[in-house]
Amino acid sequence: MRVEVRLFATLVSFLPPDSREGAAILEVPDHSTVSDVVRRLGIPADLDRVTLVNGLDSRPDDTLRSGDVLTVFPPLAGGR
């Protein structure tokens, strides 16, 4: 199935090459969970993050459906 991932700020570097505007469509196995997709992108497991599915708060073990949009926000501290 296909899902869309949208990554922000420092996470953009984990998108597949040629991705544009922080988003990409990924082909993933059916019944993949949020954490499966995050792992597949190569985002380190020890990085705390906020994940949304279709704009709503989600848990790591939530199962994704075809066409879902997964959004991941990293922690940011910059302000200078």
Binding site: P44, D46, L47, D48, R49, V50, P74, P75, L76, G79
Partner: peptide
Amino acid sequence: CLYPTPPPPGLVPS
């Protein structure tokens, strides 16, 4: 609550 621990060094520049 959102980010219980700081990110590992090197991953997120401030």
